[in-house]
């Protein structure tokens, strides 16, 4: 019986991540159960589907757990300063617009110390894809609250419960002018792969917030029994697909984060705008 079922589900060859990973760099530094590796795998599958070559991709990151990603992947890679990934990436992209620039950043890196760069990058609508790994905590420094830590949540600097309201990364991106805004999770890996592919293909600033688990610092502080419970609670039960949201009764959507493509519009892209400016400056425009 099981063999028959299996035969029906024709298995494709497992995805060959080694094609995109630098040899000898694994195991990565992320803690057991950390979702960053899951997100990376979704990203690599999306990149594979995008048809981009490794030489065409420049991956830029800031500082933090997720920002270690560029060290593992076989692209042009730039691990920069805390909060500044988008500013470095802007320099790379404007200097060489033919590069496809992907930024890997965390909730603290992008939304706290890098908040100014985040809103202005979105405003310029420069063609880059920004992945904000949101795990509600500063992991690299050992578990302090971040701009996405829920009110009341415990961390090593909010031992009485966090009193700061959260930034909604996607609302912030949309309000700042990003032309593609989406949210995914480390639980919904295939959906995330599709979302990331759409983000990479989009012309303009694409922001994808990825709800991701930090079992060691967020999980333990907030009494999650296991990484599995975290993924079920936060990523599955804490989110709802934007496609389903309309069909569900309001009480089933309330308090949940929407998943999928939340906003996509067309607006002039910065580098293309600059090319027009060059033509004008040279009397050709």
């Amino acid at each position: 019986m099981s063999a028959t079922t299996a035969a029906k589900k024709k298995l494709s060859v497992p995805f060959d991540y080694d094609k995109y990973l630098r040899p000898g760099k694994l195991p990565h530094i992320w803690c057991p159960g950390c979702g960053h590796g899951i997100v990376l795998k979704s990203l690599l599958r999306a990149i594979d589907k995008s048809g981009l070559t490794k030489d065409e991709i420049c991956m830029v990151s800031g500082i933090g757990c997720s920002s270690r990603t560029p060290g593992y992947v076989d692209f042009n890679t730039l691990h920069t300063l805390h909060g500044r990934a988008l500013a470095y990436a802007t320099g790379v992209k404007l200097a060489k617009p033919e590069l496809n620039v992907i930024i890997v950043t965390g909730d603290g890196d992008a939304l706290a110390i890098g908040g100014n760069h985040f809103i202005h990058t979105c405003r310029r609508n420069i063609d880059m894809t920004i992945l904000v790994y949101s795990n509600f905590i500063y992991g690299m420094t050992g578990g302090q609250f971040s701009p996405t830590t829920p009110v009341g949540a415990l961390s090593n600097t909010s031992r009485y419960g966090n009193i700061e309201p959260v930034f909604d990364c996607c609302d912030l991106a949309k309000a700042s002018g990003a032309t593609f805004v989406a949210r995914g999770t480390a639980y919904h890996t295939l959906e995330l792969e599709r979302t990331l592919l759409a983000a990479i293909k989009h012309k303009g600033t694409s922001v994808v917030e990825i709800i991701d688990e930090c079992p060691v610092y967020y999980g333990r502080n907030n009494k999650f029994k296991s990484v599995t419970q975290m993924m079920e609670d936060i990523e599955k039960n804490g989110t709802v697909s934007v496609k389903q949201a309309d069909k569900l009764p309001p009480e089933k959507v309330q308090g949940k984060l929407l998943r999928g493509i939340l906003h996509q519009v067309e607006r002039p892209e910065y580098c293309e705008g600059y090319e027009k400016l060059i033509a004008k400056a040279q009397g050709k425009g």
Binding site: L78, T80, Y88, T90, N116, H117
Partner: peptide, 19 residues
Amino acid sequence: IQMEDEIASIAAITGASLA
């Protein structure tokens, strides 16, 4: 490019130089 702040400016020129 007129960046959003001084920090972004040194970052942008470093990125551009690497490109």
